[in-house]
Design a protein around this nucleic acid. Structure first.
Length: 257
DNA sequence: ATGGCTGCTTTGAGCAGA
């Protein structure tokens, strides 16, 4: 089974890229972030034409997450938002079970700047996610947590670690919060399979960052040990980042047996 | 270098993103 995670930065602005990419990359499941669309306006038909059924939790302008699965693969036990969050909170989490794998798709708050309220909210959100996973699952489950974490776990995940040191996306406090989540019972699948490799998933739109490969790896696929055993490979597909008017993120993919 | 791009918004300057 091939599972992908992609922050599309507006699904409606990216429909052509998404459709073309789905046909080419052929994921069985794709987790999307920053769909930026209310549920009433979600482009269900366009995904259907590409051969996918989809569940989603969105809102106007900001955030929004979705899980699409190839027709024939049931999307079961759909769960939206963190426990305790109501319909007014930012739509940042959707979970579902596909082919026996529990998939949790997250769009972790960006945090804006270190020391701000949004930054504190980001840290709290990561801790709440950890608590919720720990309350519902064990590390023996077939569990995959993927999405835009807005944290570069290690300096190797940053093109210029000195320049980024202590900044949002790289600050020790958010790295520690991510570490607490992972240490509960998950593994950073790409890093496990490709230790030490400079692999990025996001490049700023500005300053020609992509052409200079000035990127960060902030889109992650975390898996439990039983899923890691089934993992054949994990990689970033940079091809959609090279198109006209791309998302600033590239998809991450994992193949599991 | 507090800009630099992009998408969205009660359409047009301000926001959030990362």
């Amino acid at each position: 089974m091939r599972i992908a995670s992609w922050n599309v930065n507006s699904i409606r602005a990216r429909l052509e890229h998404l459709g073309e990419w789905l046909r080419r990359a052929k994921p069985d499941v794709v987790c999307l972030q920053e769909t930026k669309v209310e549920d009433e306006k979600f482009p269900i038909e366009a995904l259907g034409e590409a051969g996918y059924g989809v569940v989603f939790a969105g809102q106007k302008t900001y955030n929004g997450v979705a899980i699409a699965a190839r027709f024939g693969m049931a999307i079961e036990d759909v769960k939206k938002n963190l426990d305790g969050d109501d319909g007014d909170t930012a739509r940042r989490l959707i979970a579902a079970t596909v082919e026996g794998v529990r998939i949790v798709n997250v769009y972790v708050p960006n945090g804006q700047a270190v020391g701000t309220k949004p930054f504190a909210y980001k840290l709290m959100w990561l801790d709440r996610l950890k608590l919720e996973l720990a309350s519902k699952h064990s590390s023996n489950d077939q569990l995959l947590v993927c999405g835009d974490f807005n944290v570069a776990p290690l300096d190797v995940d940053v093109y210029a670690p000195k320049k980024w040191e202590g900044q949002v996306l790289c600050h020790p406090d958010e790295r520690a919060a991510l570490r607490r989540l992972v240490d509960w019972g998950l593994v950073d699948a790409l890093r496990e399979r490709h230790p030490g490799e400079q692999i990025y998933s996001w490049w700023d739109y500005r300053m020609g960052a992509y052409k200079k490969n000035h990127g960060l790896r902030i889109d992650l696929v975390l898996v439990t040990p039983p899923l890691l055993e089934r993992t054949k490979d994990v990689w970033v597909d940079k091809s959609p980042r090279e198109l006209e008017r791309p998302s600033d993120h590239a998809p991450v993919l994992i193949d599991i047996e």
